[in-house]
Design a protein around this nucleic acid. Structure first.
Lengths: 140, 140
DNA sequence: GTGTTTGCAAAGTGTTTGCAATTTA
DNA sequence: TAAATTGCAAACACTTTGCAAACAC
């Protein structure tokens, strides 16, 4: 828990300040776009588009910097899906991975060490595959 | 220009031919490096390093092309871990994703629709988080 | 005021591509 | 010989950075 006043917690300004970020015009606009209560998955370019739609202006570099700052501050997180695949894996059988955030190393989780049951694919779609990555950091 | 043992060459040759790929010098060398029976997770640059270590030569562009061809041919697969995170996600609570390979869209899997149990972190490491991506394609 | 943040353009990264030369079947 | 493959360098998309001007406190 924290000992901040309600108003501080409830405004975007307060949210930024809580995170140690000055509530600048740009950050407030981005926060308004991002934290409207609905879950979002956005790319930097999509954020730019949203900014333009509101007739605002934030430079692309600032969008990138701000998204990274928000992420670092724990206000959001990031998901890597594909783009150009960073790691090529010689094992074909379905299997999952440990990823060591410290060393950048990736290795297999032994078969049977992980159990998962996934929902059905939406209508008209099939499951291509299921990727599980257990991300490791230094022991807390 | 033959630095591969005959038996290896024949096996790898066949593997490439089965996949509809001509067994060229470059592909054979890369196949030898990649398919030695041990599971591997490599980046293009690591493959380049392995090539140099064997005093071979394959251009970087060919390494990329070949890795993509091998992947496309089903000889290997690729795993995306991070790099610069492509999607920023405003939801902080642990949750997982559907990723539609057709549209490139990403959305949340409703809480409770997915069950997973993961192994303990290796000694000295903690679990930072678990990422599950259910990748969708066109219905088969 | 003082330290922080922004915007711009330039630099950087990792990957793909166009095309002539080479190699394979 | 015809078609596939390679290497190079240039193009590429996306992201980060350096620094002067603008801003928040």
């Amino acid at each position: 828990m924290d000992d901040l006043k309600k108003s501080e917690k409830d405004t975007l300004s307060g949210k930024l300040q809580n995170a140690g970020l000055r509530p600048t015009r740009q950050r407030l606009l981005l926060a308004k776009i991002l934290f409207d209560g609905l879950p979002k998955h956005v790319t930097a370019e999509q954020v730019m588009t949203a900014v333009r739609k509101r007739k605002g202006h934030v430079s692309l570099a600032t969008v990138y910097n701000t998204l990274n700052q928000f992420t670092q501050a724990g206000l959001m997180r990031c998901v890597s899906v594909d783009q150009s695949c960073a790691y090529f894996d010689t094992t074909l059988e379905p299997h999952h991975h440990f990823f060591d955030e410290v060393s950048g190393r990736l290795w297999d989780i032994p078969e049977g060490d992980l159990k998962i049951s996934v929902p059905d694919a939406p209508h008209g779609r099939g499951i291509a595959r299921v990727d599980v990555t257990v991300r490791l950091n230094k022991k807390p």
